[in-house]
Nucleic acid binder design. Structure first.
Lengths: 198, 198, 198, 198
DNA sequence: TCCTAAGCGAGACGGTACGTCTTGTCTTCCA
DNA sequence: TGGAAGACAAGACGTACCGTCTCGCTTAGGA
């Protein structure tokens, strides 16, 4: 019925490994981290690592990220079509907040040395969410895919910049800026000051 | 005045190495490429590699990218402030065109298996160009950096998507779409077809 | 008084392990055999192995050899001192016969790929038997140990040769040859055909 | 013409490894010696070891033994047929002396833990030398091979015993004993004391 | 008949050595 | 003098066994 003892032990071991990895990520570049270092930190044998993650570091990272993104996925699923169409910045706010909460890991794949695959996975996931929202809207004057890619690229890159610069603004502020740029474009900014020069 | 024989030989050797690297990049992930493989391809000794690029692969990559981007840099330098402020899509068009010309390498950098470092280098370079343009404009209502990051992220991601999908539209079309989204935002698209019509 | 069921079960388990080992020894070098392989063959858990033979493979091997040599020991014990002193080849004959009966295992021990340990055990055991016989005889003009070692070395090596060559002669013939060489030495052979004829 | 410098370096490296191995053999069982220990002792990298001996420890041991046996082979080749037929113990003396000179290595393969292959190689080599001598003598009343095997087994085993017991007698004494047993057999010893009992 | 201790299977775990791979340095030789 | 060739140290990799341990299942023998 309930989980067997050994199952719990396995889960605990994996959690130890995940924790060790995230701890190390705060200290040095992911690429520079050694399997030995991870297992030392987790007080486990190196062989044990390969028992659980035969694919090496990358598999452990993927597992850590998966764990982390479960939360984001749940939140984004709760966005209604109305939220999306309104000027509210619900979606981007959620993403910025989630990034703030898990900023160490986000930094890994959004800035410099992260596994490319991961960046793409998040980007593709967000692109799919956005496309789904637009599709309900039946807009096809412009290829949905291009639109979604445009938005996602800007959003993800912005989050990367934000984290790399140690979050100089609040998630709310960043989200507002993004939403404004996204819905009205940069024209208002340029025009306003541009005119004054005339 | 004129180059010495040995200088020319040195240049030739470096070119051989750069060519070997770019050739290999088309075949496999940058990370998986070995110094030995590069020198084998270039018919050079491994020691020779370190003679010219003591910093390892990354230094050679930087050198290769520099070579490739020289052209883009020159073109972008020719953009005047007026071009930039106008609704014209000069900048993005140039980037899309350059991407089309070097699409094999770009694809590697920007899509799936490329080295993150490269994506970042391109992005950072573009961000600097854009910031420079805005700075002349003295706009600081919004942090310039955020603005530049926003634009660059969207642009680079869009190029990546475009190449991954085998350039289904012309560079001109892509550039127009980008410019429109960038200057007016997505609001017009959403509003037009929206049911609320308010 | 009588064995408990669990005792019988223990005996059965040990027998399974011994059988598995001897079966594997016929297939591959003893050194190359793994505890896991033994327990797989015996349909037992690896932990069970260590339950019965905490000393590892070597302990199991010792146990297997003991089992096999029990028969030989009994027979050799029946040799009287008179038999030994007479020209009869009782001892060597028994050994050759026992080797013939267990030729598969003997071959492994004594020829090519066998474990040295085993060869030594057999040799040391025989050396002890021989010494015991001589000791009753109180002969110490020559160190008993040297004598016993000399005989045993020759005997065991000869058996090894015999098995490696697929027993080209009968055990009786081999035993006679050995006994003749052993009691009279090679001089008769050399002298007879020698040119000197002195 | 002369050896290249790098050749000399390679030879030096291999010599260092051989020396390290023989040094370690004096301290612990061959099986228990680790490649790491050998290279530590030789002040070399582990990878370097595999560069020269891809087959691992055993290949290094074989190489060490080969070096050692070169001397024995030369000496034995100088034995004339007359020496062999005479009662002199030239052959066995040479072997005992060689064993004394190289007792550390001999101990490795003749006693307990040595590589079986080696024991067999020496034995087979000696058997061939002995057979060659007998063959000139045209004696075939008894299969030469059996005779040679008999002698070699006794000789090699005796040397093993001698070394294991820290050479309690001189090589000359051992050789005499062996020769006497070999040419006249054990009968004289047994008969002499046997008769006295009657 | 239950129930309780033992034998056992399963497999996680720490540890150690393995043989391989790549990196970067250095030295020697050749053109 | 630039480059080829390649020996070498260093150190991470992933694999393979080892011996130990803990966990439950099964099953027999005494209650």
């Amino acid at each position: 019925m309930s989980e067997r003892k050994s199952d719990r032990r396995v889960l605990r071991t994996r959690q130890l490994l995940r924790n060790a990895l995230t701890a190390l990520i705060l200290e040095k570049s992911y690429e520079a981290i050694t399997v030995q270092e991870i297992t030392d930190r987790a007080n486990l044998g190196r062989a044990t690592f390969y028992l659980h993650y035969p694919g090496g570091k990358d598999e452990l990272l993927a597992s850590s990220l998966e764990e982390m993104f479960d939360g984001l996925v749940k939140r984004l699923d709760s966005i209604t079509h109305e939220d999306f169409l309104s000027d509210s910045n619900t979606l981007s706010l959620m993403v910025f907040q989630h990034a703030a909460e898990n900023h160490e890991l986000y930094r890994v794949f959004l800035s410099g040395q992260g596994a490319v695959t991961m960046t793409r996975q998040i980007r593709d996931y967000l692109a799919r969410v956005i496309q789904k929202q637009f599709r309900q809207h039946k807009d096809d004057t412009l290829a949905l895919e291009i639109l979604a890619t445009y938005m996602t690229g800007a959003l993800v890159t912005l989050i990367g910049w934000w984290l790399e610069n140690n979050m100089p603004h609040s998630a709310e502020y960043m989200s507002q800026v993004f939403s404004r740029l996204n819905s009205q474009g940069i024209a208002p900014l340029v025009k306003n000051t541009g005119n004054s020069e005339t």
